[in-house]
Amino acid sequence: MTVLLYLIPAMLAMGALALVAFMWALKSGQFDDLDGAAERILMDDDDRPAQPVAYPSPVAPPAAAASPPASTSG
């Protein structure tokens, strides 16, 4: 029965891992557009995950890759 000492914690850890993964997916908006996710697989161009866009008040996103490097001040 000593095997239970490993198996039960292992079971709980795996379950918890799945829970954390789900919470992360929920928070990063992966369940916000289920219809869109089903269609996007048909698009040819590589599609990066959605940037988390703030809904009511915009947050400054990382600078676009195409923009020229900003001049350093000071």
């Binding site: 557009d33 289920l34 219809d35 869109g36 866009v53 809904y55 996103p61």
Partner: peptide, 15 residues
Amino acid sequence: TTARANLSTKRVTVA
């Protein structure tokens, strides 16, 4: 910088 369409809600977010 961002244009993301949401097919479920039929809305597009643009920044």
